[in-house]
Structure formats: C-alpha cells, structure tokens
Design a binder for these strands. Structure first.
Lengths: 220, 220
DNA sequence: GCCTTCTCGTATAGGGCGATACAGCCCGGC
DNA sequence: GCCGGGCTGTATCGCCCTATACGAGAAGGC
C-alpha cells in the first residue's frame, strides 16, 4: 500500500532547500543541551527550523505524565503549529543535544508571502506533512493492542536511531522495557512479553542488548 | 429540537469568512450521500471546504479496520493535508449525507498567494489547527483506559458543539455509540458500558438522546 | 401502516493485560 | 571477590475488555 517514503520528521531535499532559501527572514539561534525552545501553554508566534542537534517535542498530561511526540533532528521544522494558529502551545520543545536553529516569526508572514508566495507553499507542505505523521501515529495508538503500539514506537525509533545490519536495522540507542512501557502506555511486564512474542514471530531480534528490526518482505 | 448531526470539528467565524472570501478560486461541487470525496492511497492536489452536509474522514488500517478521524460538517476544510504535501492520501473521505463543497486545487496556489497572501495565512491557520487537534487526541489515546479515550472525545465535542444547559453543557451533535467506538478504538459494547458508568459517576447525563456533560467543580 | 434497518441495552464466554511478587543476571563500586 | 541495584524473565490472580449474540425500541422507506 504505502512506501517507506512516508518518512516522518525527515522532509525531502527540495523542501529543505526551499526553506533554507528563506532563512534570511529568520534569525539564527543556539540552544544548549537541556534548554527549552518553547513551553506548553505559552502563546508565541515563533517557530524553528532545526539546523543541528536534537529537539524533543512532548505533551504533558494533566496527571503530569509526559507523552513524547517526536524527536526532531536537523532539517526539520517545529513549533509552527501554535505559531500560526495563535493558540497556546500544545506541546513543549527541549533541546536534548546542543542545537542550532533558525527562528522565524509569523507575525509579519503575510507580507512576506506577497513577495515570496513559494515560501507559503513550502510552509503549507511542512504543516501538511506533520499532520500526516501525527495522523499515522494516531492510527496506531488507536489500537489497544500493545503489539501495535510498541511496533509503532520501534519503527519510529528505527528511522531516527538505527543503522544498517545484515539482518535488518539495528537500534543503536538502548531503551529499557520500562521506558518503552511509559512511552506506549502499557506495563513493563507487557513490554517484556510483547517483545518475546515479536521475537517468536521473527519480526525482531536482540543483538548485544540492542533491538534489531528484521527486514521483512512485506513492509507496512 | 430533534437529533441533529453536525460533526466533530469547527473553525472560528473569522477564519471561515477568510476562506469563503476566496471561494472563487475553487469550484462548487455536490456529493451524494455515500459517495466518496477522496480515497486513501490516491495522489491528488484537491481539497475541500464543506458548505453543507457531513463528511466522514477515516483511516483504514492494514487489517481492514477503520479509524474514524473526524466528521466534518459545514464550514470545515478537509483533504488539504495530502493536497499540499503531494503524497498519497493517508485518509479517506466519504459523504455520509448529501454534501456540497468548494473544491480547491493546490497546483495553482502559489500564484494565487502572490496576489492574496492572506489566503495562504488562512490556510496555514487551518492546517495548524488540525495538527493541534490531532496531537491532543494523541495525548489521550496514549492511555489504554476506555474512559479516558471516550471522555477525550466528549470534551472535544463539547468545545465545538455544546450549548449551555442548566446542569452543564449539552452536545447538540448526535453521535452513535458505534461512532464513538471507532473514533476511540474501543468496542461498541464498551462505549455503552462506559457511558453507563459515567452516568453513575454523575459526570454525564442523557437528555432527549443527547449527551449532557455535567458541570464539575474541578474541571480538568 | 408495515417492514426493514439502525441503535441501544444486556448477557455470556474467553482471553489478555495490569498488579504484584520473586528469582536470575549483569554491572559497577569498593 | 563481595555486595547492591537495576533490568529482565516468569508466575499467579483478578479484572475488564472483546467478540458474539439476542431482543426491544426507534427511525425511516414504501
């Protein structure tokens, strides 16, 4: 049905160039590791085009628990949602590595669009791509099956942190079952059991403590 | 007042006017009940501004099951995601009532933006709002509790389609238990039971077939 | 008005998940 | 080596959800 191309936070070369070409409308900023780009609840017209580093986007729930939406790497855009609709930020963004980004401000955007309508089109492509990614995650989280939820997380991590391996793709980051549990809204025991099951189904393997996602003939 | 079907989505008056003002760039189309506006997987540059009727947006999962994303009533925009990012539609849209809509085509949009930059800004507001709603849904779907999932839907409907009532807020939209089930990833039976339970907990009530969300001292 | 279809309530059986507990293992500190 | 803590693999039990089925009642077509 779908190609692997539906890559999430990675946006295509052409779009990256389009945005980079209008970098002069923003200003370059640096964020130290663990510093905050923006916080849930604040009202702001700023958004960011990440050049280097890694930014974690998360939503905090009423009970204080955190739902990590994305980890945005280089050449991605974040914060544009609340910057354009004018409502309070629905998510927080924190640099989890030293990060450089271009900060844009939407308040003067309409006038910029008049002279540079292609910039508007590029931004619409970006917001549309993000809508797509979130909707696809929602499709998986709509399931109550732990296996769906966990596989969704693993494939997302794969695109971000995996390297090629003879048998498939190897996650270079180490995540504990406990962490997977909190990220997928299941229990630690269920994560252990589910990973076992996935291993029996020959969909994953554990290599030296790291998760290996096996190559599958029929990718979803 | 009889049972009224609206939808699960609404955008503010000002934004509606902004888009209506540019209706001439699209063309008016009619869709019979049960006809399809677009289908998951197809590539298209068209998107729709619904004027009358009701359109169901859903994602079909690999196993064939359906996740209903939204019911789009009058004065809403749909299909703009895939129309702008150029990738295959990630969702399907079907008219579940006779529907009229303005069909826009993104292929000539950049030129339109040059003369009408405010139209670009309006569309960015729309895509941003949708990103917000989906992200917030995701926050709640991260929970496996049916009650969390269902209350999330109800409060979302409340914000868009509720009217004041002596005891709280009354949803003027009528949604069936079946619809709630597909929108929350639970079974129809569980929806019925959960609504019962919420009624016992005095959090909701049913008035003339409509759901009433009772005023609560400590709102979440 | 009659019949069909949809919707809601309810019952049953089966299964899988959460909570909890405990044992084995690895690893680091000393 | 010795010890302690964190992680993983299991086991048990209770609960709640899913699947399925059936009947009552409302809504809609003809």
């Amino acid at each position: 049905m779908t190609k692997k191309k539906l890559g999430t936070w990675r946006i295509d070369r052409q779009l990256v160039e389009q945005i980079s070409r209008h970098a002069a409308f923003g200003r370059r900023r640096k964020f130290k590791k663990n510093s905050v780009l923006y916080e849930q609840g604040e009202v702001s017209t700023r958004f960011y085009f990440v050049l280097k580093g890694l930014v974690q986007i998360s939503i905090f729930r009423a009970d204080g628990s955190e739902v990590v939406l994305e980890l945005m790497g280089p050449e991605t855009v974040c914060g544009e949602g609340s910057a354009f609709d004018g409502l309070p930020r629905f998510s927080s963004a924190a640099a989890i590595e030293d990060t450089e980004a271009i900060e844009f401000d939407t308040s003067k955007m309409t006038e910029i669009f008049r002279a540079h309508p292609e910039f508007a089109t590029s931004l619409l492509r970006v917001t549309s791509l993000k809508q797509r990614v979130v909707a696809i995650r929602l499709k998986h989280l709509a399931s109550r099956e732990p296996q769906d939820r966990i596989m969704e997380l693993l494939t997302r991590l794969e695109e971000m942190f995996a390297i090629d391996h003879p048998k498939g793709r190897l996650l270079v980051t180490h995540v504990t079952h406990e962490q997977i549990a909190t990220m997928t809204g299941t229990s630690r025991v269920t994560v252990t059991r589910t990973l076992q099951r996935l291993r029996e189904q020959n969909r994953i393997d554990i290599v030296d403590g790291h998760i290996l996602l096996k190559r599958r003939p029929n990718a979803n």
